[in-house]
Nucleic acid binder design. Structure first.
Length: 885
RNA sequence: GGGCGGGUAGCUCAGGGGGAGAGCACUGCCUUCACACGGCAGGGGUCGGAGGUUCAAAUCCUCUCCCGCCUACCA
């Protein structure tokens, strides 16, 4: 019957398209800010407009979708706010590459034309990821999709900038920053990636003024000596303290360098003397500030030596390094070269080695903002999950440095600052000022810099909801319930949203932050194009289906651990989808009839009580796991319950009553089957939304959408420990017979004679009541239920379940040697366990100190193991005596 | 230098004071009327090493060895 209605194997493609359209058509993802009740909201980590779906996105958005669908089904008014980030440098680089193919540079176009070109690019080629997120099944409220450069968000950016400036929390100044000579822009500390590389420590001899003494300094970047203005030593260094205040002479250049004492200088590194290049080194910049040393800039924005570099002017920095070393060596200044591992700072966008340079930049003074953000986590207003990230967050917040927010690129939010060409006054305003507020002059020139992309991202949780306007949306959905993100942007993004949210909304942006793992390849390597180990989520979805892929991600998303993704794993879960499909295919003919399907709990059979008990325990476990962001636990409980309890046992057991067509047992069994399947579909829906909708629609003629249904709730009255215990014994007996069949190499199709001798009246009653089940699932012939004392035939294989003996008399078929081997192996195991239990129970310390529960447990176990050992020994003795004959 | 995470079956990983688990891989039997993307049965681990706490340690503590990652002003 069913096989006519459904194909034998689940085929995802069309079904996925169909249901996504259904959800959209019926506005099932739409959140209504005017609705009352409990709210649940998440803002998406906006993917770059240049981005296309990679594994990180897939994991991140699958987890969010699970939370969103789960809460929606739990009855929350649920908002998932989607959108994209304009991704300043990344996007600019993409369009610049495109221009380069046409033989053009951005300079050829000029600023306005270039920005226009980026917008055109965005309209035509940007945002492919949105459709990919839809492909993944994301239940985003697409009607509300935002872009960090759209009008509303730009307004929010200007508002924040102006307010921070007015409060003195934004300032402009000449500071040393990380400069990318390729991207031609400043980078924040976070945008610099550190990498170890082989290099040298060059030792250079500096002679002293008015003295025959000399001093050797160590450096990894000898070319910077051209910009030296001092030498620093540790004030408590006996070798050098007498030199403090004196002057050294810079080789090749001849400049006088003041020798200063500063405790930051490590006495045990290099020579203990540090050359100071204030304009080209972060540390030196700080030291120079403390001791009032001069600045000499020797490099331009391209990383070339400028006019201050004597005859090295015009050279590239690395070319210059070589030339300097050669000349120092020639003139006898080079005191040595030690191979040394240097930490190189590289631009996170283009991987060019960054150069510390002095330039005029805008900074956010983050101290006061960070203090609030720190407090909010400390007092629990925002909870970080897993908890151990909290420490990392504190660490960073406590050592945070001012945030350089200006970037010398064209694509981004232009800084709302104007300089009066007449009087030099700087005006910061929400909209273009007409005249200078100081001198009334009208020659105002706008700052050419744009803001760091993360500046607008930092406002995302409230700017997307309409801030600075006081919208109903903000009122209803801010603070958001959870933020789901990877740890790689904990500082870039999470920390900054915390600061901005607290500053401008007076409340945290989210109650929970769930930090998930990184997706790596199956060997634990980070997926990267250059390594060629990238698994493309879209290809995976094509090959295995979206649901299988999503389930894999969820099942692997253990807290605090990276995910190693392999195709075999996905294949395994694809098989699970097929299993589900076929369970439904089996059930369909029995549950399709529109009958009342109500179940009287008192009339349930043992297998029905059992599966309903297991179902309700599973509901409990899944809900509790999801509440704690334990996605993997929830997925694994569902997998195990569905496959190994529902499919392996419950369906097989249900076939017995179902075959009695038209009987009350058949009807009840169908009702339980339908109830279980429907519950499973609901439970699984947040994880695998497509197949569950499809199956639910086949099972229920009036089906609309699982999203509109209620997530299963625990029915405590159906949790039945006794039924579970009884079923465990019955399943044990069935497995025991099957085991004998397999071990004796008897074909699965062959029915076996079975004698069962229960060890107690309770078990006797149980076995009696389950006779039909045992006969059917163990495939028996000549089934006998006997009383204690009955002597089973000598030529029989033996098993013991609980205290019940299971005998398979097999005159002629059984191989005594094989049976002896089987029993011996089993006995060795049992006796080992029995020994350890006996040891415990005869240990007076254990009996005195262990909990009563633990003791009882061991006693029960002892009885069970002893009975088993006894039964198996007897079987073994018999077999041995037969074997000798 | 500081911090964090990890070392459990051949592989990838769950678990986390009282009977070692999963998926894949492996072995045997089976095309039985939901499913061979399947069924049934099975093999396989002194839970990185050493101490300690405990009646009891894979699990807690200390030390140690590896492996990742983050962070840092040792030039």
């Amino acid at each position: 019957m069913g096989q006519d209605l459904l194909p034998k194997a689940y085929e995802p493609t069309e079904i996925e398209t169909k249901w996504y359209a259904h959800w959209l058509d019926n506005k099932l993802f739409h959140a209504d800010e005017n609705k009352t009740g409990k709210e649940y909201s998440i803002v998406i980590p906006p993917p770059n407009v240049t981005g296309s779906l990679h594994m990180g996105h897939a994991l991140n958005n699958t987890l969010q979708d699970i939370l969103i669908r789960y809460h929606r089904m739990k009855g929350f008014n649920t908002l998932w706010m989607p959108g994209m980030d304009h991704a300043g440098i990344a996007t600019q680089n993409v369009v610049e590459r495109q221009l380069a193919e046409e033989g053009l540079s951005r300079a050829d176009l000029g600023r306005d034309k270039f920005v226009e070109r980026v917008w055109t690019w965005k309209e035509h080629s940007g945002g492919v990821i949105i459709n990919q997120l839809k492909r993944l099944g994301c239940a985003c409220d697409w009607d509300r999709e935002r872009f960090t450069m759209d009008e509303g968000l730009s307004k929010a950016v200007r508002e924040v900038f102006v307010r921070l400036y007015e409060e003195g929390l934004i300032y402009k100044g000449d500071y040393i920053v990380n400069w990318c000579p390729r991207c031609h822009t400043a980078l924040s500390d976070l945008e610099v990636e550190h990498e170890d590389a082989a290099g040298n420590l060059w030792l250079i001899r500096y002679s002293l003024e008015d003295s025959d003494e000399s001093l050797i300094v160590a450096t990894t970047r000898p070319e910077t000596m051209l910009g030296d203005t001092g030498v620093a030593v540790n004030p408590s260094d006996e070798r050098y303290k007498h030199l403090i205040g004196k002057y050294a002479l810079l080789p090749l250049v001849g400049r006088k360098l003041r020798i200063v004492g500063d405790p930051i200088v490590a006495m045990d590194f290099g020579t203990g003397a540090l050359k100071i290049t204030p304009s080209h080194d972060m540390t030196d910049f700080d030291i120079a500030a403390r001791h009032n040393l001069d600045h000499v800039t020797i490099m331009d924005s391209n990383g070339r030596i400028n006019e201050n570099g004597i005859h090295f002017a015009g050279m590239d920095r690395y070319q210059c390094r070589k030339a300097i070393v050669d000349e120092l060596s020639e003139k006898g200044y080079l005191a040595g070269i030690d191979p040394y591992k240097v930490g190189l700072g590289k631009c996170y966008r283009c991987k060019e080695v960054v150069e510390p340079l002095i330039s005029k930049q805008w900074f956010v003074k983050v101290g006061p903002l960070a203090a609030e953000a720190l407090k909010a986590v400390e007092d629990g207003r925002t909870r970080i999950v897993p908890e151990h990230w909290t420490k990392t967050y504190y660490e960073w917040m406590n050592n945070i440095r001012d945030w350089c927010v200006s970037r010398q690129i064209w694509w981004g939010h232009r800084i709302p600052a104007w300089t009066c060409e007449d009087c030099g006054e700087v005006l910061v305003a929400r909209s273009e000022p007409k005249e200078c507020s100081k001198c009334k002059g009208s020659r105002l020139v706008r700052d050419t810099d744009v803001l760091d992309t993360w500046f607008s991202s930092a406002l995302w949780p409230f700017s997307t909801m309409g801030w600075p306007d006081e919208t109903k949306l903000l009122y209803t959905f801010y603070p958001t319930s959870a933020l789901v993100t990877g740890f790689d942007i904990l500082f870039f993004w999470v920390a900054r949203m915390m600061m901005m949210g607290l500053k401008f909304m007076n409340d945290v942006p989210f109650k929970d932050v769930y930090i998930h793992a990184l997706v790596r390849d199956e060997h634990g390597k980070k997926m990267s194009k250059s390594l060629g180990n990238v698994i493309d989520p879209l290809k995976v979805m094509d090959k295995f289906g979206t649901d299988a892929f999503r389930f894999t991600l969820a099942a692997l998303a253990a807290q605090g651990r990276d995910i190693r993704l392999s195709e075999s794993r996905i294949e395994g879960y694809r098989n699970f989808m097929n299993k589900l499909w076929n369970a439904a295919r089996f059930a369909l003919p029995y549950v399709a009839q529109p009958s009342s399907m109500s179940v009287d709990p008192d009339k349930l059979s043992l297998p029905e009580k059992w599966i309903l008990s297991r179902l309700n325990r599973t509901i409990k476990e899944v809900r509790s796991a999801l509440e704690d962001y334990n996605f993997n636990e929830a997925a694994q409980h569902l997998y195990h319950f569905t496959w190994h309890e529902f499919c392996d046992w419950s369906i097989e057991l249900a076939k017995i009553p179902l075959n009695r067509q038209g009987s009350p047992e058949a009807e009840q069994s169908a009702a339980v089957l339908k109830h279980c399947l429907n519950s499973i579909m609901k439970l699984l829906h947040p994880f695998i939304p497509f197949i569950t909708e499809e199956i639910a629609s086949k099972l229920n003629s009036d089906h609309f959408s699982l999203l509109a249904e209620t997530y299963p709730e625990v029915n405590e009255s159906l949790i039945n420990e006794e039924a579970e215990r009884r079923m465990t014994t019955i399943m044990g007996i069935i497995s025991a017979v099957r085991n004998i069949r397999a071990e004796m190499n008897i074909s699965p199709g062959k029915a076996l004679p079975v004698i069962i001798i229960p060890g107690s009246s309770g078990e006797s009653e149980l076995v009696k009541s389950a006779e039909e089940i045992i006969q059917s699932l163990a495939k028996t012939s000549d089934y006998q239920l006997q009383k204690v004392g009955f002597e089973p035939p000598k030529m029989a294989a033996t098993a013991v379940v609980g205290e019940t003996g299971v005998y398979v008399p097999l005159q002629g078929i059984i191989d005594p040697a094989a049976e002896i081997a089987r029993l011996t192996k089993e006995l060795v195991k049992i006796n080992k366990d029995l020994d350890s239990v006996n040891k415990k129970l005869s240990n007076s310390n254990f009996m005195e100190k262990a909990s009563e529960e633990a003791v009882t447990k061991q006693r029960n176990r002892q009885a069970e193991l002893a009975a088993k050992a006894e039964g198996l020994s007897q079987g073994l003795i018999k077999m041995q005596s037969l074997n000798r004959q």
